[in-house]
Design a binder for these strands. Structure first.
Length: 891
RNA sequence: GCGCUCUUAGCUCAGUUGGUUAGAGCGCUACCUUGACAUGGUAGAGGUCACAAGUUCGAGUCUUGUAGAGCGCACCA
């Protein structure tokens, strides 16, 4: 079974994923002796397809889930999809339009049926795509927000809140999307800067005693004006308070009122009041009991109160009103004006403040405890800085408008009675009014905001309101992983509902990650055309490379810029690991696994310096990876692995192992190295599995030391590998550092002197102490191989004429590296090289001299820092001496 | 206006409680097909850490201010 020399993810990923599924490795146990760990997937829209944002979000969750699974936890990753009221309804309506149909002609029942058909046919796309990424969720538990169980939970919550007086229906000014013909919540309004105009309009006083000037950005709303307001202390207008003005174009008379809301300094200090079409004016209107005159229809056209402008859309009405005002001499002036205008985040159209009957959740009593659990640290945000944002929002929270004038969603479980007009609110469909017993009841047409059902997700997916073992085991969930954009939409509301209905928080930790941007830093979106399709990226580069790219960049929860270049780099990394495996397996062909398997230890006395060194480095790696995972600093973990695999394992350990595997070596040492190699490779794939699951599982299946399935093998830790790691002591590891430094010095001399790699050179190593002598002697063959030497002596310095010299020091071990250059190169290059080295050392020396001469430093700095400085100064001086001597021999 | 981030090599970013002479990847320069890998190897160039002041023996790191960028919330009609 020869491995191909390139890793081809396409040959691997599907096969491995199917194998995991068959093995049932993703399944959680309802009840178990194992410690539970649970995550609920933020349910993506059924209409959606996987984008990079999902890829990032899911990868983080999958990393946590796989890590905990390997650590022996009973892991539940609960998958699901969201019915996404507006989005899904829009998709199907667009389809209908192509068939020249519309939902109103079709009727509610038929239409909803049609949406279900659509969902059955296309709703599985995103969950299908999640498998390409490697998501290891418990698919048997897949939920949909309109499932029976979840719907029952939604109804119960609605009824309970209603009975507690926390849900009410009322006539209020709400945000209205004329495109959707539905209410939307405050959060669904995006404020965008718009360059418009401000118009100054003259309103004549009814008694003919003059006129008053108002300014507005929305002149058409004057048709709905029911007052004009000035500041009560404004001296200019004292005489006018209480008088009437005659509204141009309509001829209605409206009062001049006084209200402190008016800013005297802005404009003329007079404000027209349109209570039915502006939130501030609405508040003024309520204070003064003004008429609320609605001038709009649901579709954003003017209604019968619009007089001559009835039937016109707002922008058209605006033009006509302005033209008429101007013609009649009421328009004083027009000035350019930039201001924020609310747009519907779903449809993009301008949102209209609109007076209508809607259902609301009273937030104040619910928000208070939800605020407290974050303040007290029962729920922790990671990174912590989001805490403040959350708390700020919770303190300015308004009642939540939960009704939507749509058909796709949870229909509000409330019935009006034609006889007594009262509401019957019930978990099961009632047949009679609960107040008067009349059978003439009719269900509310509206459905609930999609986020209403999402708010219950952590427990509704676990069978609530039934009592279930699943809830006992997994609620509260362990971590919630999500983007900051839905902290308010979703996170806050889950905390509220969890506390209200489960008497406990829904999760302990909220990990907030950033948003993915393109290489230029722009937000990725379909409309901008800069969105990379993760499915295509996976096909080209592999899921592991994509996951690694995302993970390596999310430190600190900041936004990340996505570049294909980076992705290529991690694809190369996967290939590097693949080839390291190929090399290892080739050299392990005659290796027989000891009976102890995973716990097999080499004979310490048989181990080379390199063997001990790699074991020591492995211990460092295990610590780093664990630390990164525990602190949600995934990039620390992925970077540590990357560095270990490439720059430690491949660059040095495998290179050192090469001479060992050649003929003629001590068979005992070869055996030790084979065992170390097999053990280290085993640790690498286990450590890397949560981050790059496919390639590691594929490799694992080919390793000599392995179990059944990597996905459920134990995750390596310093504690678990205690015995193995005891074989790699830091002090001994320095031996190899000396060897590596020596090789680096030879290579540097070679490189700087432009000695071609083909030219075999002779090197003399002159150790300055017995330990260096021993270490270098033992590693002579490796040094020769790695720095391509023809000859190498360890001992006397010998004749130094026409030689390149480089002192090397690691801890107390010192060696002078001597390369005779006679006949090889122009001495000039070596002179330059030595001068450069001296220059650098001199900089160090002057810096250290100054520091050590500073009495304050000597008095205040800790002893070890001072000692370190002294040592470095001595060393640098000694090295300069050696180099100076070498230089003087050359010139 | 309030709040939160950010500013480090040509580019993208690490740099955890202040400790020496600031790192990585990509890109760049020169060289190399050596029996795992050219999706590779070796060597090298490249930074007054946005700016200013302060605290300190010592500041990329802490404090304050300035300038610039991004985001969230609330907004004057």
């Amino acid at each position: 079974m020869e491995l191909p020399d390139r890793y081809n993810p396409k040959d691997v990923e599907n096969r491995i994923y199917e194998w995991w599924l068959k093995g049932g490795f993703f399944k959680a146990e309802d009840k178990s002796t194992k410690i539970p760990f649970s995550i609920i997937l933020p349910p993506p829209n059924v209409t959606g397809s996987l984008h990079l944002g999902h890829a990032l979000n899911h990868t983080v969750q999958d990393v946590l889930v796989r890590w905990k699974r390997m650590q022996g936890f009973n892991v539940l990753w609960m998958p699901g999809t969201d019915h996404a009221g507006i989005a899904t309804q829009s998709v199907v309506e667009r389809e209908l339009k192509k068939e020249s149909k519309n939902r109103r002609d079709m009727g509610r029942e038929k239409f909803v049926e049609r949406v279900w058909e659509w969902k059955e046919q296309y709703g599985g796309r995103i969950t299908e795509q999640m498998r390409y990424l490697g998501d290891s969720c418990d698919w048997d538990r897949l939920c949909f927000t309109l499932d029976d169980g979840v719907s029952k939970a939604v109804r119960k919550v609605f009824v309970d809140l209603y009975n507690k007086g926390l849900i009410y229906k009322g006539l209020k000014l709400i945000n209205w999307s004329p495109a959707l013909e539905s209410a939307i919540s405050d959060l669904e309004v995006e404020h965008k800067e718009v360059k418009g105009s401000i118009y100054h309009i003259r309103y004549p006083l009814a008694d003919g005693s003059g006129h008053i000037e108002v300014a507005t950005t929305r002149p058409e709303t004057m048709l709905g004006d029911t007052a004009v307001a000035v500041h009560p202390d404004d001296e200019r207008y004292q005489a006018w308070i209480g008088k009437q003005v005659k509204l141009p174009l309509t001829g209605r008379t409206i009062p001049i009122i006084a209200d402190t809301y008016v800013d005297r300094a802005f404009g003329s200090g007079v404000v027209k009041i349109t209570p039915a079409h502006d939130f501030n004016d609405y508040a003024v209107g309520q204070r003064h009991k003004l008429t609320m005159l609605n001038i709009l229809n649901k579709d954003g056209t003017l209604n019968e109160n619009g007089g001559a402008y009835q039937g016109k859309k707002v922008p058209d009405a605006r033009k006509l009103v302005l033209a008429d005002l101007e013609a009649q001499g009421f328009l004083v002036k027009t000035e350019p004006h930039t201001h924020q205008v609310g747009h519907c985040s779903r449809s993009g159209v301008v949102v209209e403040p609109y007076l209508s009957e809607q259902w609301f959740v009273k937030m104040a009593p619910l928000a208070a405890p939800a605020k407290r659990v974050v303040e007290s640290g029962t729920v922790v945000f990671e990174p912590e800085s989001w805490t403040k944002t959350y708390l700020h929002w919770m303190s300015i929270i308004e009642d939540w408008c939960i009704s939507r004038q749509l058909w796709w969603g949870h229909r509000i479980p409330a019935w009006t009675c034609a006889d007594c007009q009262k509401w019957t609110v019930s978990e099961t469909d009632p047949t009679a009014c609960s107040h008067c017993g009349s059978a003439k009841i009719k269900q509310e047409e509206d459905v609930l905001d999609t986020w209403f059902s999402s708010a219950l997700w952590p427990f509704s997916t676990m069978g609530w309101p039934q009592k279930t073992e699943l809830q006992d085991t997994f609620y509260p969930t362990s971590v919630l992983v999500t983007g900051f954009d839905i902290i308010f939409f979703w996170v806050a509301r889950m905390i509220i509902m969890g506390l209200e209905f489960k008497q406990d928080v829904p999760f302990r930790t909220v990990y907030i990650h950033g948003v993915i941007r393109d290489a230029q830093g722009k937000k990725m979106s379909k409309s901008l055309g800069n969105a990379e399709d993760p499915v295509k990226l996976i096909e080209e580069f592999g899921a592991d490379a994509l996951r690694y790219t995302l993970l390596a960049q999310i430190a600190g929860g900041r936004d990340l810029k996505f570049s294909t270049q980076r992705l290529e780099g991690y694809r190369n990394f996967m290939n590097k690991l693949w080839n390291a495996t190929r090399f290892s397996l080739n050299n392990l062909k005659d290796f027989t696994v000891p009976a102890e398997g995973l716990n097999a230890l080499p004979n310490k006395s048989d181990m080379s310096d390199a063997d001990q060194w790699i074991i020591y480095k492995l211990g460092v790696l295990e610590k780093e990876v664990d630390e990164g995972l525990r602190t949600y600093r995934f990039s620390d973990s992925t970077n540590a692995i990357y560095h270990f695999v490439w720059n430690i394992f491949c660059d040095w350990y495998l290179e050192f192992s090469k001479p060992v595997f050649l003929e003629g070596f001590d068979p005992k040492q070869k055996k030790a190295t084979q065992l170390v190699l097999a053990q280290v490779l085993n640790r690498i794939v286990r450590l890397m599995h949560p981050f790059a699951p496919f390639i590691t599982e594929e490799i694992y299946q080919k390793l000599p030391i392995r179990g059944e399935a990597l996905i459920v093998e134990s995750f390596p830790t310093v504690k678990l590998d205690k015995d193995l790691l005891a074989l790699g002591v830091e002090e001994v590891a320095h031996n190899l550092d000396l060897v590596r430094e020596t090789i680096a010095a030879i290579r540097n001399i070679r490189g700087e002197n432009r000695i071609k790699p083909g030219v075999k050179i002779h090197v003399r190593l002159a150790p300055q102490d017995p330990r260096a002598q021993k270490v270098l002697g033992e590693n002579k063959v490796a040094i020769m191989t790695l720095s391509r030497l023809e000859e190498c002596s360890v001992g006397e310095a010998g004749d130094l004429a026409k030689c390149a010299v480089q002192p090397v020091q690691v801890k107390d071990m010192k060696v002078d590296v001597i390369v005779p250059l006679e006949g090889l190169v122009d001495i000039e290059e070596e002179v330059k090289r030595i001068r450069k080295a001296i220059e650098k050392l001199q900089k160090d020396v002057s810096l250290l001299t100054v520091r050590l001469a500073d009495a304050n430093f000597m008095a205040n700095a800790p002893e070890d820092i001072v000692e370190q400085g002294k040592r470095q100064l001595t060393e640098a001086k000694a090295q300069i001496q050696t180099l100076d001597a070498a230089l003087s021999r050359l010139i």
